[in-house]
């Protein structure tokens, strides 16, 4: 037996070639290596380090939208003024991933490709209409996040496709976003239940709404009924309650060591309401603290 192997990729093409030969990519190691240490899954026999590939760690603006390289860390996202200002729900999420060490090393590409239904960045990015660019042996393709996730830890992408970038379109004027999770502690935590909302206001009415739920189904997904309930009038209590109830009604949670099915269902409506109200407040120009999860209790 030859034992485990490791190579360092110096380009996307290098990485894809190694992956096509069976290697798994590793960047910050905060899912793959930590998961192995926790005994969830052994480390892959063949690894390719992608952390030194040049040009993948940038946050760029494009027509008012953002292009995030796969190696952008959560720390970089949280401290970026445009992310905080116009893509605030993503800052809410990156601010609470793991610990400060997790955020300094964990990447947006790794977070999305790990396909956990409890990942924090997924719901806000899904609501923002983000797409991902995948590089494979046959070339590159772009797909929506809703097409990327196939189940818990399952991707529609094949094992030899590397996430290269995340593209977030420009938000319409009057848009605010938020991500909120139920957490038993503020750090080193995974969402027990989470929700994201992106709300566009015009003339005091909700013109557009995107609402997604986290850790409540096999994949993070949007809830069209909740979005429809919020759109078409002022974001008053009745409308917000109806939208939150619809979001919770779409939940298909599991029961596990962290929460029962019943508790997750009960908290789904609370998290959805907090996410919607925070997004509405931001859309109206109010300055709400980041991360929203730490400041929305009691609402």
């Amino acid at each position: 037996m030859m034992g485990a192997t490791y190579t360092t990729a110096s380009s996307v093409e290098d990485a894809v070639a190694a992956m096509a030969a069976g290697a798994r990519p590793v960047a910050g190691g905060t899912d793959l290596v930590v998961g192995a240490r926790q005994g969830k899954k052994p480390l892959p026999q063949a690894l390719v380090g992608i952390h030194k590939i040049p040009g993948l760690d940038g946050i760029g603006e494009s027509d008012g939208g953002l292009v995030l390289g796969a190696l952008v860390t959560h720390s970089a996202l949280v401290s970026h003024p445009i992310v905080r200002g116009r893509f605030t729900g993503l800052a809410d999420a990156s601010a609470i991933v793991g610990s400060h060490a997790t955020r300094a090393n964990g990447t947006i590409g790794g977070n999305l490709m790990n396909a956990s239904p409890a990942m924090d960045t997924g719901a806000p990015l899904l609501c923002m209409g983000a797409t991902v660019e995948l590089a494979g042996p046959g070339g590159r393709r772009t797909i929506g996040l809703d097409e990327l996730w196939a189940g818990p830890g399952q991707l529609s992408a094949s094992a030899d496709e590397l996430l290269v970038s995340v593209n977030i379109p420009a938000p319409s004027p009057g848009t605010g976003s938020a991500y909120v999770r139920l957490q038993y502690r503020r750090q080193m935590e995974i969402a027990v239940v989470g929700a994201a909302a992106v709300v566009t206001l015009g003339g005091g009415a909700v013109m557009d709404a995107r609402i997604a739920i986290t850790a409540l189904a096999p994949t993070i997904h949007r809830v069209p009924d909740a979005e429809a309930a919020l759109v078409g009038g002022p974001p008053d209590e009745a409308r917000v309650d109806a939208a939150a109830a619809a979001a919770a009604a779409a939940a298909r949670p599991i029961g596990d060591v962290r929460a029962s099915v019943e508790y997750r269902r009960a908290m789904a409506v609370v998290m959805a309401r907090r996410a919607i109200m925070t997004a509405v407040a931001r859309a109206s120009g109010q300055d709400m603290a980041i991360p929203a999860s730490d400041s929305t209790y009691g609402s």
Binding site: G29, V33, L47, A101, A104, N105
Partner: peptide
């Protein structure tokens, strides 16, 4: 960058 070196290759 702060890193948990137990879980870093």
């Amino acid at each position: 960058r702060p890193v948990n070196s137990c879980s870093y290759l």
